[in-house]
Design a protein around this nucleic acid. Structure first.
Length: 473
DNA sequence: TGAAATGTTGGGGCG
DNA sequence: ACGCCCCAACATTTC
């Protein structure tokens, strides 16, 4: 029996048609079989969290639509799925864009070997990073550990950045009858916690470009200062789109470099480069998601039993409004403003003395933009155990941070509506408000809003004492 | 991409 | 008029 000749395009974290190198390379092939594989088994403990699955479902749905509903879905170990495909079809070649998570790299290498053994051409492309983790290193060949030095070096290597290119697909797209339906991937969570996400986000390539355009039209003009104020719309909100590759980072880079020269645009590119830095760290320190980059933190006396406080943190019931607003924003919308991420992170690691891994796991499950490299590098940054990290003794005071970056309490009031009648003076410290003010605002501490779960001064001192134990080791 | 403690300065009140 | 004290306001140091 004659098997059908096909070329396979394997979509992974590159759910777009624009500027997609693997797709470009196959756009002229005769019969193109586009596939997506949900591979929880190989991912193990780093399989996608709930929020990511919600996003992925929507994004795949839209990608499928833009491929005339010819996207093929599979669930299982990628090597098994691909083995089936090369059995069922006369596969000419399999192309994909590279991913950099340790488990994916290991798996992809195995698959490349399998294909080589079967004399099928397998090719992977640089697509979703500006610089691959092995492309920019120190003179001695070691990876950078200091961001500013790394960035300086990056700017000398902008020629390594791909030029965006989009090719029209001329192939006829093949639907595999063994493909399962998107719904059968069961990506939607059982509980209905994504209603607010629908209002705020449009997963997929179109939504990605919409957010980019919106950012260019307004947010970027005041990015450098505005990005610190959660109520302003001065951030790009591109993180989930970038994570799933719905927009090409090379396209973003070139567009901004060619059209903007001010400090705001410059600062945004720096943030894009932090993403690159996270990937550099993850690639060269594959243990980044689990192990402290600075080993002295292995001896840090984290509190092991702190379930009650941890639950209060997760649910946004710490009694510190800026922290609670952030944690509730995360739960309700799958997103949290970056400034607030730093505040809630500092609070968990320093005021509650909990290991950053607990925060990393919670974010992993709740964030639409959950990304192994960014999430682990950022938690280590907050905890002080990472590369070029915030020094441990830099402990955020949630009251002062609130007063500085959410002066009128607008952000707090949005996510903690029970505080909305409090005067600004007390919006970040309801526990200091006089009885009559609380009464007037209908805030009943311990009833409709919690008492603070820790004392800031005492917990700060405890954190500094704990740090003293590992300092200089 | 902090905060708190400590140090310094300079103006004004007051004896 | 002068010195002394107080204390913002700002700067520096320390954690």
């Amino acid at each position: 029996m004659n098997k059908e000749k096909v070329s396979i395009l394997w979509f992974r974290q590159d759910l777009r048609l624009k500027d997609n190198p693997a797709l470009n390379a196959l756009a002229g092939s005769g019969h193109l079989l586009p596939i997506y594989i949900l591979d929880d088994e190989n991912a193990g403990e780093f399989k996608m969290g709930g929020a990511s699955r919600y996003w992925l479902h929507k994004s795949l749905d839209r990608l499928n639509a833009s491929l005339d509903s010819k996207l093929n879905f599979y669930s299982g170990r990628a090597e098994d799925i691909i083995e089936q495909l090369i059995t069922n079809y006369d596969v000419q070649e399999i192309f994909w864009n590279r991913c950099y998570e340790p488990w994916r790299m290991k798996r992809d290498k195995k698959i490349k070997d399998l294909l080589k053994k079967n004399q099928i051409e397998a090719k992977s492309f640089k697509s979703d990073l500006l610089w691959e983790p092995w492309e920019v290193l120190k003179d001695d060949g070691a990876p950078y550990r200091v961001y500013s030095a790394y960035y300086k070096r990056l700017l000398k290597n902008t020629k390594l950045i791909r030029s965006p290119e989009t090719k029209k697909i001329k192939s006829s797209l093949i639907k595999d009858k063994r493909s399962v339906g998107l719904d059968e991937l069961k990506l939607f969570p059982d509980i209905n916690w994504y209603t607010d996400m629908d209002k705020q986000w449009q997963p997929g390539e179109k939504g990605a470009h919409k957010n980019f355009k919106k950012f260019l039209d307004s947010g970027i003009k005041n990015y450098k200062e505005g990005r610190d104020f959660p109520k302003l719309e001065s951030v790009s909100r591109l993180s989930p789109h970038l994570h799933f590759g719905e927009i090409s980072v090379a396209e973003i880079w070139h567009h901004i470099r060619n059209n903007y020269t001010d400090k705001n645009a410059g600062h945004f590119l720096k943030e894009i480069a932090w993403r690159e830095f996270s990937y550099l760290l993850l690639y060269h320190f594959p243990q980044l998601p689990k192990k402290n980059l600075q080993e002295k933190f292995d001896n840090f006396p984290w509190k092991s039993k702190n379930k009650k406080q941890f639950d209060a943190w997760k649910k946004g019931n710490t009694g510190y409004p800026i922290v609670d607003a952030g944690m509730r924003e995360l739960w309700q919308t799958g997103y949290m403003h970056n400034r607030v991420r730093m505040i809630v992170g500092s609070f968990l690691v320093k005021n509650l003395l909990m290991h950053w891994r607990h925060g990393e796991r919670w974010f992993w499950d709740c964030l639409l933009d959950a990304d192994l490299a960014n999430n682990s590098a950022s938690w280590q940054w907050v905890a002080g155990s990472g590369a070029d990290a915030a020094p441990y003794f830099r402990i955020f005071n949630p009251i002062l941070q609130g007063e500085r970056f959410d002066k009128d309490g607008d952000y707090v009031k949005k996510y903690c509506p029970e505080l909305k009648e409090l005067p600004n003076k007390y919006i970040h410290k309801p526990f200091e408000a006089p009885m009559d003010v609380l009464l007037e605002a209908d805030v009943k501490l311990g009833e409709n809003y919690p008492h603070p779960i820790v004392n800031l001064g005492e917990s700060r001192d405890a954190a500094l004492d704990a740090y003293e134990e590992i300092k200089g080791k």
